[in-house]
């Protein structure tokens, strides 16, 4: 009984038989063993049925629906980048050469106007600050080097603590993505 069990085809040998790679010795056994032959025939039939299952189709437009869910990634061509930079630059240089007088007037006028506006803004901000009710208190706080040091130290500590807390809050949990490695 034991000998008979041992000589029956193993699953690996059935696989080998399905692929036409069974050894001649085992082929001989297969031909002489009704049990193995029945099993092998039913295996072959099953494998044939599975292999003949049709491919199924999703509804029409499947590809469009997939593409619609993808973020568009366009190929950035070096020639397009160069053209995008060089053409406006060339146009700008050409216009500047053709309108040098106008350009110098614009630069001078704009420069002086910008300077005047900046000065007015700074003075206005300064006077607004001095008129604030909390200004004397804040000024007193920074009145001595010791106080200034304490305030700056406390501020730096609070800032660093805030950064640590934010980093912990914003760090994503690490999780292995099974499909990411091919």
């Amino acid at each position: 009984m034991t000998d008979r069990l041992i000589t029956h085809l193993t699953p690996e040998e059935l696989d080998a038989w399905l692929e036409g790679a069974l050894t001649p010795q085992r082929e001989t056994h297969l031909h002489g063993c009704a049990d193995c032959r029945q099993l092998a025939d039913s295996e072959r039939e099953l494998v044939h049925l599975l292999g003949a299952l049709p491919l199924l189709s999703p509804r029409p437009g499947f590809g469009d629906r997939v593409i619609a869910r993808l973020p568009l990634r366009r190929r950035v061509r070096p020639a397009a980048i160069a053209a995008g930079l060089l053409v406006p630059m060339a146009a700008s240089v050409a216009w500047s050469l053709a309108n040098q007088d106008l350009l110098s007037q614009l630069i001078q006028g704009t420069g002086s106007e910008l300077g005047r506006l900046s000065w007015v803004t700074i003075r206005s901000l300064g006077s607004t600050l001095l008129e604030q009710p909390w200004y004397p208190t804040v000024r007193a706080l920074f009145g001595s080097p010791t106080r200034l040091g304490i305030v700056l130290g406390a501020s730096a500590t609070a800032y660093a603590g805030g950064l640590v807390v934010l980093r912990r809050l914003l760090t994503l949990p690490t999780q292995r993505v099974a499909h990411a490695q091919g």
């Binding site: 299952l53 049709p54 491919l55 199924l56 189709s57 999703p58 499947f62 590809g63 997939v66 593409i67 993808l70 568009l72 990634r73 366009r74 190929r75 950035v76």
Partner: peptide
Amino acid sequence: RAGRQAAYRELVRRYERPIFSLIY
């Protein structure tokens, strides 16, 4: 990978039926 959208479509065209069949 170079950003050619037609390549994405081609990959979908090639594998939509086998993948759908397997998943179904």
